[in-house]
Design a protein around this nucleic acid. Sequence first.
DNA 1: TTCTGGCACTCTGCCCAGTTGAGTGCCAGA
DNA 2: TCTGGCACTCAACTGGGCAGAGTGCCAGAA
Lengths: 357, 357
Amino acid sequence: MPDDGKPDGRLIDTRPSVRPLDERRLAVLRAIVQDYVGTEEPVGSKALVERHNLGVSPATVRNDMSALEEEGYIHQPHTSAGRIPTDKGYRLFVDRLAEVKPMTAPERRAIRHFLEGAVDLDDVVARTVRLLAQLTRQVAVVQYPSLTRSTVRHIELVALTPTKLMLVLITNTGRVEQRMVDCPGAVGEGLLAELRARLNGMAGGCRLPEVPVILEDLPAVFEVSDRAAVSAVLATLFETLAEQNEERIMLAGTANLTRFGHDFPLTIRPVLEALEEQVVLLRLLGETADSEMTVRIGHEIAYEGLNSTSVVSVGYGSGDQSVAKLGVIGPTRMDYPGTMGAVRAVARYVGQILAES
Amino acid sequence: MPDDGKPDGRLIDTRPSVRPLDERRLAVLRAIVQDYVGTEEPVGSKALVERHNLGVSPATVRNDMSALEEEGYIHQPHTSAGRIPTDKGYRLFVDRLAEVKPMTAPERRAIRHFLEGAVDLDDVVARTVRLLAQLTRQVAVVQYPSLTRSTVRHIELVALTPTKLMLVLITNTGRVEQRMVDCPGAVGEGLLAELRARLNGMAGGCRLPEVPVILEDLPAVFEVSDRAAVSAVLATLFETLAEQNEERIMLAGTANLTRFGHDFPLTIRPVLEALEEQVVLLRLLGETADSEMTVRIGHEIAYEGLNSTSVVSVGYGSGDQSVAKLGVIGPTRMDYPGTMGAVRAVARYVGQILAES
DNA sequence: TTCTGGCACTCTGCCCAGTTGAGTGCCAGA
DNA sequence: TCTGGCACTCAACTGGGCAGAGTGCCAGAA
């Protein structure tokens, strides 16, 4: 059989549906995605050869389209209409056809400058999310640096009344959590000072999840009469640490949803609903790979209301390690290279800003 | 002239445009508002007499409508269509024709129960705003108890490094603000303790805006060598107090915007944009009267993007005095009595919850 | 084998005219 | 002052016809 001559014959191809897509077909798919993203209208063979110089005639492109449709990469709303990429088509585009489009130097300067103006953690997050929304013209989501990854900078105890303490936990990312503690008996200033010193001595600099383990035996160090109070404080502290679900998220750019498509109310409603559910957003970001950028397209997203959207997300961190995630939510029909470029750039700069402060 | 017999003749009427509207006309206006709010469609004379038993014929109602239109209370999208209330019409409806619809007993119980489950201030606000959005099926806004009205419960200073302090301000409403302070020189533990004691002694229990006045001369009490550090701390404290624009707001129910009307994208876009501007929302709530419920309708709202909406807002507080505002934003075509009832009820219960905690 | 030009076909979208029906304004009479 | 009747207006719907974009297929060229 003449097949033998081909280096990538069927038998050794591990990507079964890819083989029939030779270079030109991929180029056609890329062109379709690009055009559709631009015009928001099904794209036909003639328009395609006019805008991109593919070097072949519309008829040829039609054949390729036919094949692409066969494979499920594009789809036709009705006979005698142009083609629209499917989720699978976008996936292929993102994986093999698109380059992340880097920000230009002036853009990068602007990002950096804007973020540097922040005065505290809240402001950093607020600025980041606004910036991201503006750059991508989509909905941006930024998660506050998470408790699990960060370390204890300081633990403070304040006596409000003899039996009522306030516990303040400060992390290296600048986050502050405070709780009230009701102690079973009066707590003297001496005990308070000792407890404060020991807490900071033992737990200072530690990762938050490790703190309970480290402090486990602390009550034993104190006088029997004081142990109840110490335990109460510890219990509250551990509770604070454990409440990881208290992770906060900030959102911006919801007005951009209005640029979603023509069939508004139906599409936009579930998205708005999803955006109000912190849980959904957290899960969305939680599924992001730690190191590299994650793109989820349409039905790849577990949450049903977001099935007509795509999510581009990435971790960001103050050092080499990521402490939280951020991302963008937009229509599946979005400018992936541009969006990915913006997301990556913003994540990098927030990381730098956090590391500096 | 025969006019003399009428007790409310022109000369003593201080509401010029109201006189010609006798009882029945007002009833017609009320009926129009009610129907339009329900159906979202222009309401005609025939439908009106069918649904409400006005005791007169459609022709009569038509005359009344004509008069109402003359006065600017209703308006016709085009000849041979029904009538729609104008902003002025809604205004009259709210002022003179509508009763605030009280919540039913089970509803009140549910509200109370739901709010009682809150664990801290954040949670109270979060629950309140969700509840309000759900009850009214509109966009709800709740302002965090404001700094200006609240008092100092405690001020804490924590040395992070010899020259870097952390200042924590705790208010009686449970709100906590923290700032970093860079001191010009090292701050000893003794100085820190004295400063802490004096700050709390002098400012504890005071209203926040009064604090700067009270502490103005504090540096003079300390050794000359320490004054720079004290001043630095005070500067940061005053800054924190002054940042009233840092007032926070929580939002819920934006998905309800999709029920806004048919002409979506145009209406909803500016609203979403407005909702992302904390400043706009704060001003909106800021214009709320302290004690009573405020209703602003359509063009009565200063911000242009919200000209097709109405805002129902009211202050709430932990005691007799209001410490913050909350409210609802919806289409001018909204159920005013019901919305006002819900807003009032929720405000009352949040107040109670805050007072208890 | 692959590409190309040509051709017939299929749809949607748009325009146009005609019809329907809700709703009005006005008027004369109770 | 209210009512019934009547003519009028205008948006919304309907159906037919037309234009245009796009396809699929086929026979012939490279």
